[in-house]
Computed example of a mutant assay.
Amino acid sequence: MGSENYTKIVEFLLLGLSEDPELQSLLFGLFLSMYLLTVWGNLLLILAVSSDSHLHTPMYFFLSNLSLVDICLTSTTIPKMLYNIWTQSKAITYAGCITQMHFFLLFAYMDDYLLTVMAYDRYVAICHPLHYTVIMNPRFSGLLVLGCWVIGVLSSLLHGLMVLRLSFCIHLEINHFFCEINQLLQLACSDTSINNILIYSTLVLLGGVPVSGILYSYSKIVLSILRISSTQGKSKAFSTCASHLSVVSLFYCTVTGVYISSLGTESSHSSAPASVMYTVVTPMLNPFIYSLRNKDIKGALKRFFLIAMMR
């Protein structure tokens, strides 16, 4: 096989969730509905937070950024999937595949970091309430979000550059509905050991550190809540972080489930349906979890709709 077969890569083929023609219409309708619901729910939450001055606090500032990232995360994968189903095409260009992989990693990392920042925010609010406004001032909150973006961009860019150095074989079928980095590495004909080391290093440094930070924050939060004497005080303190804890559990449980399922089988087909949980379902549920469990958000939404109707 000549070297020219490795360099002239024009496009990849995304096999999607199923190759059954009878399921394509069902998948199109299902994922279109989920995508529209994700965009609508998160956009509505952003509008509610930005339109209500009572919600201009660090907690809701981080929440609105999380909603924006969730919209971007689903927008990197689902529109292309819907387009391929609609046109009955599986193709994605080489440049488009690398770009999709880069932005997916960026927004996935952003989700991870923002959840960690939000856990720290709840830690300061409950464990150091008298110093909360001093510590979590607007400048520091902005720097935390900026730091999340910088780390996310650098991490995803590094992965993208390392993939660009790879050579690919003739068979370029990706057993997924988007260009997932592990799937791309399986198609490479050149040595991927450096890429694998980078992935594992990233999981330890940029995955393990946020998880450790979240666990540490909530261990301190639980200890502080247990010291509160009144039952009403405990309930109020817990309610301020219940929504975030639900979102954190949903995100990490689904991500962990995906990687456990992929390790437990040699077939790469099983990881695609499992990936739907954290790439589509979790971003779709996040705004509803916060809206249903948060009186401030529900109040802001009511005022937002009331103002919109009066106009």
Rank of each mutant, 00 (worst) to 15 (best):
L263V: 01
I9L: 13
F304Y: 15
Y259S: 00
I135W: 05
L158G: 06
S141Q: 02
L144T: 02
T279S: 14
C253R: 09
L245Y: 13
Y83E: 09
V281C: 11
V39I: 11
T231S: 02
L198T: 06
M59H: 09
D296Y: 14
I174D: 02
V124I: 15
I135D: 03
V69S: 04
M81T: 01
E180P: 02
V124H: 07
Y290N: 03
T265C: 12
D52H: 13
H244M: 08
L23E: 06
D52R: 11
P21N: 00
A48R: 04
T192G: 05
A237H: 04
Y278I: 03
C97A: 14
G96A: 08
S262E: 10
S141M: 01
S262L: 09
V10M: 07
V222I: 14
S249D: 00
L158H: 08
F62K: 04
V153D: 03
Q88W: 04
N137Q: 07
M59E: 13
I225K: 06
Q183I: 10
F238K: 15
L146T: 06
C189M: 12
Y113I: 02
M162R: 07
V134H: 11
G96W: 12
S224G: 04
L306M: 09
S3W: 14
G29T: 03
M110R: 07
S246R: 05
F288I: 09
I221A: 00
Q183P: 03
T279H: 14
M277I: 11
A108E: 15
S230D: 08
F61H: 04
L115M: 12
L292K: 14
I170F: 15
S53K: 13
F168R: 06
F168M: 07
S267K: 15
F104M: 09
S224T: 02
